[in-house]
Design a protein around this nucleic acid. Structure first.
Length: 461
RNA sequence: GGCGCGAUGGCAGAGUGGUUAUGCAGCGGACUGCAACUCCGUGAACGCCGGUUCGAUUCCGACUCGCGCCUCCA
């Protein structure tokens, strides 16, 4: 029985979709004004892994992740660059898709863009105005009337009185209350805008998600996910908008990924301590990065450091060493690894536990490789299958282990030539020479492994 | 100040009211010409103080420390 931790109730609960066998999931995506960083990657990988697992268990998953392609930040950045906002956002969307592909993140079922949903956004705002939950202000903006929504703050345990008392924002004359947030922003001179009953303008951030999720999934759906900084105010506001407008419960299960930290601080744009996915992929293999992001439970924070990435690399090395030099047949049903793996993942997607099961499998596989090739081949298939559910272990082991030739490093051909010379020396029992060649390769980061079948090699990470 | 989360062996990181996490590193052994890979064995932990219990790292309470959100941020 699948259990998922729900941010709304703050407990793990058995998961039951609205429609049997089908899961409707919406995850907040990027605001495309810059390259994605590792924090974004964590959300992408976490929900990708969750989607892959759910599908592996036979659920149909309709996975929607939006793209915020109109926003102050995009407008400002585009102006700085001297380019049109649309050009910037299109460029960043393309970059995001490249980054995702490298991390083996599957594309969501739908990726709605805010600019393609202006009509539904306006319709939603209109409904909120008609129901008294929103009001057009004198400055051309439309605001949400927070204090009208009785259960505001349910997701993050906020209460309106304390929020009002602690409001840091200077009072905006146009707002009835400092807590009110903007649904529609009146256009300033020269900005991209759309006509509306309240004047030219563009949508506020929160309303986009309410509108797009309703369009793509309906007024009520199963899972809503996002990053660690979204529960307040973004998701709180989505609940207020959607439930006030639709009159039904918005989301059954809220899921939030943990933060990526650097030196014990959250990695974020506002702190300026972020690494883009591109930066990281220059240094580390994409599958290593994916392994790193999967190696901790999705709700816990994770520390980005040289050491963590190295550790992820050694875990993959162990998996791929086990898969190396062996035939892969069909998974054996005569073991309980699959069942234990599923049990771990059913428990709120406990990937560390799932990896523990896989490592036990590796141990049995390595033992079987010595004298039972039939069993080994089927265990290898089982391992590769489980890895596949997590979006890992699908490369040829030798390709992964050998890695790419580094700048100025030895080419594969050069390595093979040296290995042949060493084999000749060994055949002549000239161990001094064979060791010299091995040391020479080691100095270049190439490790040799002799076996009955010959010598294989891999590059150190 | 309000609302949450966390504190596990040298490091990373799951989990459990009494029993092996797992990976890396360490130690002893096997394999190997020597290594590497691999295998076998092994040492090592549950922040602090109380309480509940036959028994708590696990449940409850206080404390200390760390982190996140309360403002745009994944």
């Amino acid at each position: 029985m699948l259990q998922i931790y729900n941010t709304l109730t703050k407990e793990k609960a058995p998961f039951q979709p609205i429609e049997a066998g089908k899961i409707k999931m919406y995850v907040c995506g990027m605001t495309v004004y810059d390259y994605c960083h590792i924090g974004h990657a964590r959300v992408m990988v976490s929900f990708d892994l969750i989607t892959r697992y759910l599908r592996s268990r036979g659920w149909e998953v309709e996975y929607v992740r939006n793209i915020t392609d109109v926003d102050d930040k995009i407008i400002n950045r585009a102006a700085e660059n001297g380019e049109a906002a649309i050009d910037l956002s299109e460029r960043m969307i393309a970059a995001m898709h490249e980054d995702e592909a490298k991390l083996n993140v599957l594309r969501p079922s739908q990726e709605p863009k805010a600019t393609a949903h202006i009509d539904s956004i306006q319709a939603l705002i209109q409904t909120l105005i008609e129901k008294g939950f929103a009001y057009p202000a004198a400055n051309g903006d439309v605001y949400y009337r927070v204090e009208k929504f009785a259960t505001y703050g349910q997701l993050t345990n906020k209460n309106v009185d304390e929020l009002r008392a602690g409001a840091r924002i200077e009072v905006n004359e146009a707002k009835e209350s400092p807590l009110d947030f903007v649904l529609w922003k009146g256009a300033k001179e020269g900005e991209v805008s759309w006509e509306s009953p309240w004047g030219a303008g563009r949508p506020g951030w929160h309303i986009e998600c309410s509108a797009m999720s309703k369009c793509c999934l309906g007024a009520t759906f199963d899972i809503h996910g996002g990053g660690p900084d979204l529960p307040f105010p973004h998701h709180e506001n989505e609940i207020a908008q959607s439930e006030a407008a639709n009159g039904v419960k918005y989301v059954n299960t809220w899921m939030h990924a943990g933060a990526v930290r650097v030196n014990s601080e959250k990695m974020s744009k506002s702190l300026g301590n972020f690494f883009t996915i591109r930066d990281v992929l220059e240094k580390y293999d994409a599958e290593v990065v994916r392994m790193f992001l999967s190696s901790v439970h999705y709700r816990s924070y994770i520390d980005y450091s040289e050491e963590s990435l190295k550790e992820a690399r050694s875990k993959l090395d162990r998996f791929y060493q086990a898969l190396n030099d062996i035939e892969v047949s069909e998974p054996d049903t005569d073991n309980d690894y699959q069942q234990r793996f599923d049990a771990a993942m059913d428990d709120d997607f406990n990937t560390p536990q799932a990896f523990a099961v896989m490592f036990e499998l590796v141990n049995e596989l390595n033992t079987a490789k010595r004298d039972n090739s039939v069993k080994a081949a089927s265990l290898a298939a089982q391992l590769k299958h489980l890895g596949g559910v997590l979006g890992l272990l699908q490369q040829h082991p030798a390709d992964f282990l050998q890695g790419e030739a580094k700048e100025g490093g030895l080419s594969n051909d050069a390595i093979e030539t040296l290995i042949q010379q060493r084999a000749d020396a060994k055949a002549n029992k000239d161990y001094a020479e064979s060791d010299r060649i091995r040391d020479e390769l080691a100095a270049q980061g190439v490790i040799l492994k002799d076996s009955r079948e010959g010598t294989s090699w891999y590059r150190e990470s």
